[in-house]
Amino acid sequence: MTKRYVMVHDENKCIGCQACNVACRSENGVPEGVTRLQVRVEGPYGEMPHLHFKYHRVSCQQCEDAPCVKVCPTGAAYVGEDGIVSIHGDKCVGCMYCVAACPYKVRFMNPETKVADKCNFCKDTRLARGEQPACVTVCPTDALVFGDANDPQSDVAKLLNTKITYQDKTHLGTHPRVYRVPTKRGGI
C-alpha cells in the first residue's frame, strides 16, 4: 500500500517554545532570515480572565493537490512516491512561481542555494536514515506526531481516529496533510 505521510500538531500540548524551529534549521541547514518551520504564538484572544493563545504551526502543508507543483514550469516541484511534496534542486530556476502560488505562504527562496525551499518532512535527511523529522524528534511536550496514515497501526492513524482535528484553508481543495488538534479553549 502506498504511504501517506502526515503530521499532527496538537495545539494543546504545544508551548510555542521554538525547539522545532531550531532543530529544523540545524538539521536542514536553513539559513538565517528564512524559515521552513515556525510556531507562531498568536493572541491572547478573548477578555480577561478568559484568554487563550493560538499556537499556529507555519510550515509546508504537504498538500495532496499542491498548487506549487502545478505552477512549477520545470518540474522541480514534484510529488514523490511517498506522497511528499519535494523539490529537485537542480531543476529549479528560481522563478518564484511556487512562492507566489502557495496559499499558506510557506515557500521561500533559499538565499544560499538559490532554490525554492520548504519543509519536506526531512525527507532527504532524517527520513532517509529511518528517523522521525527533526521537529518531531525534539518537541519537548510531544505535541507533534508524524507517520504513515495509511498504516492503521501507526500512532498518527490512531491519533486521527481519536482526536478532533482540523486543517488550514481546506476550502481551497488543497487537502493539506498537516492536521491540527484544536486548543480546548477558544475557536479554531
Binding site: Q18, A19, V138, P140
Partner: peptide, 12 residues
C-alpha cells in the same frame, strides 16, 4: 524523553 529545547538545539 530524548528531547531538547530551542536553546539546547542551538548550542552549535
Amino acid at each position: 524523553g530524548g528531547k531538547v529545547c530551542a536553546r539546547g538545539g542551538a548550542g552549535h
